[in-house]
Design a protein around this nucleic acid. Structure first.
Length: 869
DNA sequence: ATACATACC
DNA sequence: TACTGGTATGTAT
């Protein structure tokens, strides 16, 4: 700083790009020079521009925070201070110094493994990863500023002699397993945080250890090591300071801190360890090294937060013990830079720095202010950090909450490529899901465009999925929605990912029942979820000092109203939800509300006769006025055909006389309508009357949704368009099966049964002359579906229902020419699944100028037709 | 529930 | 030429 620009904090520089010398092994390097090289390698790139943008967003957050700070009055501060003091007292009262927590961290793990297996690398600067990204580097390389999470091509500029070795996770996992075997001997409940680090609770081990005979504390040197001595591959030792533990393998004169010397016996060499914590940890590290030829560092402290910091203190190949006294802890913490604390990252550090806080001592001094500027979670965490508090137990390994796979690639702009990639990802994900026997209800698509802007799109189903087809059915539609939203511009992607979450437990796949089980067996069902919730509540009430897991202090409270939409190019066509209707109730689709209401009715012994359809089933009959097969298109021009909002009175005959489904004729509307909620027959053909009835039925749960009116004119136009499109489809060489259906299934009446429990759908047998198998027609979008697989069909219906909700929310502001794409995906589906010719034909037809504009093109549609509304 | 940001390795 | 991939969690809407 004194000899040049401070690249990490200077104005105009991206603190997020600067060299992060937080980690070990970066002492005494020329930061300015390194940062200059990093900058020159990055400047002007899309990545850099995006980083710039994000940095500005952070700066804005900070500005707002400072503004907020300026408005804080003395009185507010006083009051806050009182609360902070109260809490500090309470936290102090609960301080627990009785546990001995150890954090173990393998030194430059991947790099060390590679060096072990290729001794030529020993004295060279090397890193593991690729030209695009490095996972880790050895200590030689770190001297040049080469470190984890740095792209290899920049590292090469910093250190032209750098050797980059590709990652080999199979190997790392195997080594990790060996190390974990040792961990388990000291704490069977240890918690691995990654392949190379873990938290252990040594308390119990130490208690037992006191009575162990020396023989139990004696460990043998690796035989081959001992025999060949210096010839063995060495670990990176270049930066080992004097006071470090020195590996007996590498240095005969073991550190004097070790009270018991190694013993050379006839059968080899032994090392005896004492009964103290330090000795126990040293022993563990010794055993790790003997077993794997890799070194580890460790931190010993009364809680996890401190142990983590301590393990970094004497890295590599060292350990540090923080005594379990309040004085030692407070001393340690006072000089601790906030950035060293797990959970406080670049952004949090920057925000704190803006408030003049860089060490934990400042943290304690500014708690009152922080309590006013930061969220409760955030300042509570900071408060604990400032007092040197942290988790004093090793939490049982929690069940995984999500599983994902993502891939970065060279720009991908073609829809077909994007879709096939999406499918690949789903295949990979499904495979992983299968391995763990998981099923989840939420599918999330992640996209990153060539400008590094990331967005995610998620959909939660009412049931759990796991197979490729199931996941892809969702991911594909989410992707198409984005493609369509961006249309006619292509999505220029550099990354795509698929994640699945909201897992349901294996033993019961019915989420509804699961909650019941949870209710009946609180102890069991509480194990992970609820108990945590209870803990959190306790935290707020009593603030036990072990309650807080380290977590990011994520956001300044005043940043709440920050709107970023305008700044996001992606968002140019984003649905704007502010225009949605005032609605206190949770958003539910019609089906969901109907179903919920029906459950209510049943619970109240409404005793609805179901004609043997099973409970919670209701029946919808609707008429396929026009075979929908010709309708599909990926262009936004007519994708609107498929949204629930577009269902018109003529397109969609509402729950009509459920039992009349046997009629094969496409009778328009029956004389009476069956309410999907109460199942009574409403003697009317007037949909307004019918709607009023349904509203009545739904009234309890009913949200004050807008009463959108149906435009008959538009419905007519819609029908015309449908018919035109059908003809188009026929004359344009669509796939044969489709042609057959479109020509033969006009007026096919289909009955869909939806079972309230598991959403299985069944159809009446095909009424048409040619038995082409049952045709599944979505009751929401009314398009017949390609697949005969009911599961897949159900996915589709779910998507449509969800889309309906989206529309309901965003309908007012949703661009009429830019509706969701969820349903209109069949052409694209086929383009992937069918031979090239077929897809070509499709594409051609789709792009054909003779293709009639859909109803969307006819004019803005600013109402939402929710089923019968 | 969804989207996005932050964080960790 | 080239700036990851997997998971969790906090915040806002």
């Amino acid at each position: 700083m004194e000899n040049g620009v401070d690249y990490s904090k200077g104005e105009g520089f991206l603190s997020r790009m600067a060299l992060n010398d937080n980690k070990a092994g970066m002492e005494g390097l020329d930061r300015d020079k390194i940062n200059k090289i990093i900058m020159e390698s990055s400047k002007g790139s899309r990545f850099y521009e995006n980083e710039m943008k994000r940095e500005q967003q952070v700066n804005q957050r900070i500005e707002k925070m400072m503004l907020q700070k300026a408005q804080i009055t003395e009185q507010q501060l006083k009051k806050a201070q009182a609360e902070v003091d109260r809490m500090a007292t309470e936290l102090e009262r609960r301080r627990d110094l009785s546990r001995v927590i150890v954090h173990v961290d393998m030194d430059a793990f991947y790099a060390a493994v590679e060096i072990r297996d290729c001794p030529e690398l020993k004295d060279k600067p090397m890193a593991v990863g690729s030209m695009s990204m490095l996972s880790t580097s050895n200590y030689h390389a770190r001297k040049y500023g080469v470190r984890a999470a740095m792209p290899g091509f920049i590292a090469k500029k910093l250190c032209p002699n750098l050797v980059i070795v590709p990652t080999n996770f199979v190997k790392y996992r195997a080594v990790s397993a060996e190390v974990r075997e040792i961990f388990a001997e000291y704490d069977p409940h240890f918690q691995p945080m990654s392949l190379d680090e873990a938290y252990l609770d040594f308390t119990d081990h130490l208690e037992q250890r006191q009575s162990w005979p020396e023989s139990s504390r004696t460990h043998r040197f690796r035989a081959s090591s001992a025999a060949t001595g210096g010839e063995q591959p060495k670990l990176p030792q270049e930066a080992v300071p004097e006071e470090k533990d020195l590996s007996p393998v590498l240095f005969d004169d073991s550190p004097s801190s070790s009270p018991v010397r190694g013993v050379r016996g006839a059968g080899g060499e032994f090392q005896v360890f004492g009964t103290s914590v330090e000795e126990a940890v040293r022993e563990m590290r010794f055993r790790i090294e003997q077993k794997t030829m890799l070194t580890a560092s460790a931190g010993i402290a009364p809680n996890t937060m401190l142990a983590k910091v301590c393990s970094d203190k004497n890295k590599p190949n060292g350990q540090y013990r923080l005594l379990s006294t309040r004085e030692a802890v407070m001393d340690f913490v006072l000089s601790l830079p906030v950035r060293k604390v797990s959970g406080i990252g670049k952004v949090s550090e920057k925000m704190l720095n803006a408030l003049g806080i860089s060490s934990c001592s400042h943290l304690g001094q500014q708690m009152a202010l922080l309590s006013l500027l930061f969220s409760e979670t955030a300042w509570h965490h900071l408060m604990q950090v400032s007092l040197g508090l942290g988790s004093t137990c090793i939490p049982r390994h929690e069940e995984r909450k999500s599983m994902s796979t993502e891939r970065t690639f060279k720009e991908l702009s073609k829809v077909e490529d994007q879709l096939s990639l999406c499918r690949e990802l789903c295949e990979d994900l499904a495979e992983d899901m299968k391995k763990e026997g998981l099923k989840g209800k939420t599918v999330t698509l992640k996209l990153k465009n060539v400008n590094f802007e990331v967005k995610t799109r998620a959909l939660t189903l009412t049931y759990a999925v796991a197979t490729v087809d199931e996941i892809f059915a969702v991911a594909r539609d989410l992707l198409k929605m984005e493609i369509d939203n961006e249309s006619p511009k292509p999505l220029r992607l550099r990354l795509m990912g698929v994640r699945i979450s909201a897992f349901v437990s294996l033993d019961d796949k019915k989420p509804l029942q699961r909650s019941i089980i949870g209710f009946l067996q609180p102890g069991k069902a509480d194990s992970s979820g609820s108990s945590q919730g209870i803990n959190q509540k306790l935290d707020k009430a009593h603030l036990p000092n072990h309650s807080f897991q380290t977590g990011p202090l994520a956001c300044v409270a005043l940043a709440q109203n920050c709107r970023r939409q305008e700044e996001v190019p992606w968002g140019s066509k984003q649905r704007v939800l502010e225009g949605g209707q005032p609605d206190d109730q949770p958003k539910q689709s019609f089906f969901q509300r109907a179903h919920a209401k029906r459950l209510q009715l049943q619970a109240a012994n409404a005793s609805v006769q179901e004609e043997g359809l099973g409970e919670n089933a209701f029946m919808i009959t609707f008429t396929d006025t026009c075979a929908q097969k010709g309708v599909e298109s990926s262009t936004k021009a007519n994708k609107s055909n498929c949204t629930a909002s577009d269902l018109s009175q003529k397109d969609f005959v509402p729950p009509v006389e459920a039992h009349a489904s046997t009629s094969g004729c496409g009778a328009a509307v029956s004389e009476s309508l069956t309410c999907p909620v109460c199942f009574s027959h409403v003697e009317t053909t007037d949909l307004n009357v019918f709607n009023r009835h349904i509203d009545q039925c739904l009234s309890d749960a009913s949200t004050k949704t807008n009463q959108f009116s149906v435009s008959d004119t538009e419905s007519d136009l819609d029908l015309e368009n449908h018919q035109k499109e059908c003809e188009e489809g026929e004359s344009n060489g669509v796939d044969p099966q489709e042609d057959q259906r479109s020509s033969e299934n006009n007026s096919l009446q289909t009955v869909l049964l939806i079972n309230g429990d598991n959403k299985t759908a069944t159809l009446s047998p095909p009424q048409s002359r040619n038995d082409t198998g049952p045709i599944l027609i979505c009751p929401v979008c009314q398009l017949s579906q390609d697949s005969d697989d009911l599961t897949i069909f159900n996915h589709h219906v779910d998507l449509c229902l969800n889309q309906e909700v989206l529309h309901e929310l965003g309908g007012q502001t949703l661009s009429p020419i830019n509706p969701p794409s969820v349903i209109n995906s069949k052409a694209l589906d086929r383009s992937r699944l069918l031979p090239k010719q077929a897809s070509k034909g499709k594409t051609k037809r789709r792009d054909s100028p003779s293709s009639p504009p859909s109803k969307k093109a006819k004019g803005p549609r600013n109402t939402i037709d929710k089923f019968f509304r």
